[in-house]
Amino acid sequence: MVVTLNRPDVMNAMNTKMLEERLALFREQAYNSELRCIVITGAGDKAFSAGGDLKERNNMGNKSWGNQHQIIEELVLLTRDFPVPIIAAVEGYALAGGCELALSSDFIIASETAVFGLSEALRGILPGGGGLQNLARAIGVRRAKEVIYTGRKLDASLAYEWGLVNEVVPKGQARDKAIEIAFKIAASAPMAVRAAKVSINNGSETDYHSAYALDIAAYNLLVKSEDRLEGVAAFNEKRKPKWKNQ
């Protein structure tokens, strides 16, 4: 599935309507057993997303701001914990909330035109969409502090060097590359991919022994699955497996 942030006239800035639509879609698709991967991208080539719609937020009262942010907070956790992998395909600017959305994905494919930044401190607030935690986990605490404190922007090459993105591709090719990887993910056993995501996400937040226990619990469940039998049989019969997702 490809999800496109479709407000190219405002660099795909996210207003309340867009946030509500994405939340509704993710809530619905979280229960789609046929879904294998999501690619998120932005319309046009200027921006993945410039973040929140500051024109909509201009003079927004505390109550309205808080109501909107409740949607964002649910989206942050739903994106991180979504059952299947989410790949961000970034062309152009991914700033503020747009950068946070990319950081919340499983990984990022960026075009050579990509620019990442969390500039909230320059606007009197902090990244509220998971950016503080996700950036530090991606590039390290010390580098993240510099980026957050100063609003420094990272071009694609530096983002790759610092471990923010998985791969940099020529302009206009981020979406296609992300879809190519999504098809490779879809060729893997769906139960195994989902279990791996849970174990990696949760294991990275705890000590090694506890994390390994999560791995083994998932491993033992998969050993008993029909897909494990199918995977071994397909290998020995020199054919592609036909996953049953059970």
Rank of each mutant, 00 (worst) to 15 (best):
I216W: 11
A89N: 04
C37N: 04
N201I: 12
G163I: 09
I200H: 05
Y160D: 06
S225W: 14
H209T: 14
A178W: 12
A96Y: 07
L222I: 13
R22G: 00
I108N: 01
A30G: 02
K153F: 15
R36H: 12
K46Q: 11
I71H: 06
P85A: 11
A192W: 14
L95Y: 04
I86M: 10
V168Y: 13
E161L: 01
V223Y: 07
V165S: 10
I72N: 08
C99G: 09
A89G: 07
P85N: 12
F107D: 07
I179R: 08
D227W: 07
L122C: 02
G231I: 11
A156H: 02
I87C: 01
Q29P: 00
V147S: 00
N15H: 08
E100K: 03
D155P: 08
N202F: 14
L23A: 12
E34M: 13
M18W: 06
A121Q: 09
D215V: 12
A94Q: 02
V147M: 07
E161R: 06
N166Q: 13
I148W: 02
L25T: 04
A110E: 10
L101V: 03
Q70M: 15
A217Q: 15
E56Y: 09
P190T: 04
R239I: 15
N67R: 11
L126G: 00
F82W: 10
R194G: 03
G203V: 14
G140H: 02
K171G: 06
G128D: 06
S64F: 01
E146W: 04
S188H: 12
V165R: 00
T79N: 03
R57C: 08
R143G: 02
A218L: 12
Q246W: 13
T206D: 15
V84Q: 04
Y219S: 05
N62M: 14
Q70N: 05
D45I: 09
E56C: 07
N134C: 00
E28W: 02
K184P: 00
S119K: 03
N220L: 09
L23C: 07
A211I: 10
Q173F: 09
A213H: 11
T4N: 00
E237S: 12
A174N: 01
V232H: 07
S225I: 06
K242V: 13
Q133K: 05
F48L: 12
G163N: 08
E120A: 08
L118H: 03
E120M: 10
E161G: 00
G131N: 05
V141F: 13
Y149A: 14
E112P: 01
G117S: 13
A94I: 09
E100S: 11
A88V: 04
N166P: 01
L126R: 04
V76Q: 08
Q133P: 00
V193G: 10
A182I: 13
F183C: 06
P241Q: 07
L78N: 01
L5P: 00
F116R: 00
E226K: 09
L164S: 05
L154A: 01
I71E: 01
R137Q: 15
S49I: 11
E161T: 14
E74I: 06
A136K: 10
K145F: 15
V141L: 11
V165L: 01
S111H: 05
M60K: 10
A121K: 14
D106E: 09
G163F: 02
A96S: 15
L103V: 00
